[in-house]
Amino acid sequence: MKQNNQHIDEQFLFSILEGTSSDQDKQQFQEWMQADSANEENFLKMQKIWKSSKEIEVFQKIDEEADWKIIKAKSGKTVRLKKVNLFMRYAATVLVLLSLSLVYLYQTTPGFGKYAQTKSMQTKDKIVLADGTEVFLNKKSKIIYPKHFNSDVRNVEMEGEAYFQVKPDPTKPFIIKSGNAIIEVLGTSFNVKNEMDGATVVSVNSGKVSLKNQETQEVIYLTKGEKGILYDSFITESVNNEPNFDSWKTGVLRFKDMPIPLVFKYLENFYNVRITNKCERLDTLKFNSYFDNASIDEVITELELHLRVKTVKKGNHLIISDKKK
């Protein structure tokens, strides 16, 4: 898997702002801006602060012509000293503003300072954090994380879906912020998914995980084989009867006495296809099978064999109908 890390060095951005960058740097900068809308948004914030620091009110009040007349009417050494002191004060003001602005950007802006950001698009990504934790990102997902874990906790933020294999460290809890959910672990493996309706689903594969609602502070604890769902202001916990919660990562699809309509939904999501079922008798049948990183053509072959159907494939559209005798 190719890692899609959106980090770019801050000195590089300074050269862009100052207009001292090379053509090659400018090309790299454009690619960085186009890689993620968040990059463009953060740079525009930085650019605004940069421009504001050069146009602060104290500079706007300077009347250069009037000041020069005063300077000529006074003695050279004294006036030169006052002129230097005046501009040193202006320069110090600019330096303070720039320093505060850059410290703020360094502390808060992913891809600029101490935080890095990885965003997957049409492919899945795997990243390894500074502590050795492995994170697998599903398509169209994002994670923001420190380049180094220097505090007594390991904090990250994520959107979309990700599978975590957290490196055990009893002295530093691993905390994930996702939507309105806070997930805390010491060392375990689990899946976190933001559903389209706003729910956050945590499915535990090993170890123990806590799931907390930021608003109500309600907490539940989940162990292997359990899942928790945070939706609106409610948290529920249950046995995880979802056999394919991590199939996007493992490539394995499991079907045991599963109704055919539900099987088709899994196949649509996994293979990014659309299935039209024209064989009504399938709605009452159940399906048993196990696919390990199988191609869609291999799945179609098995469906046709076991269900006695015919499949017409038109691009990403599968049309299933009864097989003529």
Rank of each mutant, 00 (worst) to 15 (best):
K265L: 00
D63N: 15
V219K: 10
L44E: 14
H148Y: 12
K147E: 10
A73E: 15
I71N: 08
L81E: 11
P168E: 11
R154E: 05
K83N: 09
A92W: 07
P170H: 00
N150S: 15
A35W: 08
V96R: 14
S178N: 08
S75T: 00
V299P: 12
V128I: 15
K256Y: 09
L303D: 05
M158F: 03
Q117P: 04
G187T: 02
E10P: 14
G19P: 04
M121N: 15
F264W: 03
I143G: 01
A66I: 05
G179T: 11
G113F: 04
A91E: 08
G251C: 02
G225F: 05
K224L: 04
N138M: 04
D322T: 14
P173A: 01
E55A: 15
L13Q: 08
Q34P: 00
F245C: 03
K74F: 10
H306A: 12
V309S: 11
F164S: 07
T20Y: 01
S178M: 13
T171N: 10
M121I: 11
E55F: 06
R281C: 08
N213L: 07
V309I: 15
I320M: 09
K212Q: 04
I71T: 14
V202Q: 01
I235F: 03
Q27N: 13
E298H: 12
S210K: 09
G76Q: 03
Q117D: 05
Q214N: 04
E41R: 13
K167A: 15
I182Q: 07
T276P: 01
M1Y: 03
N240I: 05
L137H: 06
S101M: 03
K83Y: 13
N316H: 13
L222S: 01
K324Y: 08
D125R: 06
K286P: 03
D257T: 12
K249L: 00
Q30T: 12
S238W: 02
E215R: 12
F14Q: 02
F234Q: 13
L222Y: 01
D292T: 06
S52P: 00
K124M: 02
S247P: 02
K45L: 13
I62Q: 10
K72G: 05
K74H: 13
L95E: 13
T311A: 08
A181P: 05
G225P: 05
E40I: 06
K54C: 01
I320C: 09
L95A: 14
D197W: 02
V185R: 07
A38F: 06
E280A: 09
L17I: 10
I70C: 04
K119W: 01
S210H: 00
Q47W: 07
S210F: 00
K48S: 11
V209Y: 06
A38D: 13
T276Q: 11
E304I: 11
L211N: 08
L253V: 05
I8E: 03
G160L: 07
S52K: 06
R89H: 12
R274F: 05
G207E: 02
Y290P: 03
I175T: 09
K208E: 07
P168R: 08
K167H: 07
D322A: 10
K212P: 00
V219Y: 00
V185S: 02
T223V: 12
I8H: 12
I275D: 04
G198H: 00
D257R: 09
K325I: 10
Y221R: 01
P170S: 14
L102K: 03
